[in-house]
Computed example of a mutant assay.
Amino acid sequence: MPIDKRGPVFHDTAIIDEGASIGGGSRVWHWVHVCAGAVIGEDCSLGQNVFVANRVVLGDRVKVQNNVSIYDNVTIEDEVFCGPSMVFTNVINPRAAVERKDEYRDTIVKRGASLGANCTIVCGVTIGQYALVGAGAVVTKDVPAFALMAGVPAKRIGWVSRSGEILGEDLVCPREGHRYRQVGENILEEITDDGSDCSN
């Protein structure tokens, strides 16, 4: 495999602490702060006023919009979209006067998921692949793959395809024609032309 000679691009106002790992082709915009232990993949985009803590991992082609703070113990897989001003947490019951750094909970956002503007992801949950969390929703429990989530607390109100299109009763993506099948109350699988599961 040839070596990628592209370097990341940093705006003059960005603060990148020594030791941070940022992959080729990534763009770090105005007033972003990336801490020393952060690992950021290739072709990512970090919008204005984004904060990335030490114990954070971002995959490739992740898009983080303006005013998002990604705190310790958050892992974001490839091709995730984080909408403007959405919120991650890392402690369930924070108090200013109580030190709880040893109580951080892991949060995982699986490949291809989208997190809408101003939504909140409470720590300790996993967002399934290609799920779509609506703007302003508050996620307090694990989210299934392909789920369309809305409300406070967030509930599944439907299903979406890999391309983010809302699926009708036929479970066929209106954009790409990919077919899906529901195999449980909260389990959706993408299927191939021969009927086999191709979700993974």
Score class of each variant (00 low, 15 high):
D102A: 10
I108N: 00
T120D: 04
D102Y: 02
R100D: 13
A117W: 05
F81L: 14
A150E: 15
I166K: 11
C123Y: 01
T120Y: 01
T107N: 01
N118R: 12
N93K: 07
P84R: 11
I127E: 08
K155G: 08
A135S: 14
I157Y: 14
D142G: 10
D170C: 12
L132I: 09
G112P: 06
A131Q: 11
V80M: 05
A96Y: 12
K141T: 08
R162I: 15
V160F: 03
I121P: 01
R100Q: 14
S85Q: 11
K101D: 09
K101V: 13
L148A: 11
K155M: 06
L115W: 00
N90Y: 07
Q129K: 13
I166W: 09
G151R: 05
M149C: 13
R156D: 03
C82K: 02
P84F: 08
G128A: 13
R156V: 11
T120R: 01
S114I: 04
T120F: 05
D106G: 01
E99H: 12
V122Q: 02
E99F: 14
V87Q: 14
T120M: 11
E99N: 15
W159C: 06
A96E: 15
T107Q: 06
G116M: 06
R162T: 11
T107I: 04
A145V: 02
V125W: 01
L132Q: 13
A145T: 06
G128R: 03
I92V: 15
P94A: 12
K101R: 12
S85N: 13
T120N: 03
V109D: 00
V98W: 09
Q129A: 13
A113R: 00
L148K: 10
T140H: 02
C123A: 07
T140L: 08
A117E: 06
A117Q: 03
V133N: 04
G151S: 13
Y104P: 01
G164L: 14
V152Y: 03
C82I: 11
R105K: 14
R105A: 15
F81K: 08
V87F: 04
P94Q: 01
V109R: 00
G136H: 05
I121K: 00
F81W: 12
V133G: 03
F81H: 07
C82F: 11
M86P: 00
P153L: 08
S114D: 03
E165G: 03
K141F: 08
G168P: 04
R162K: 10
P153C: 08
I157A: 11
R100A: 09
I166T: 14
V98P: 04
N93L: 13
C123S: 12
K141V: 03
L132F: 14
A113M: 07
G168A: 14
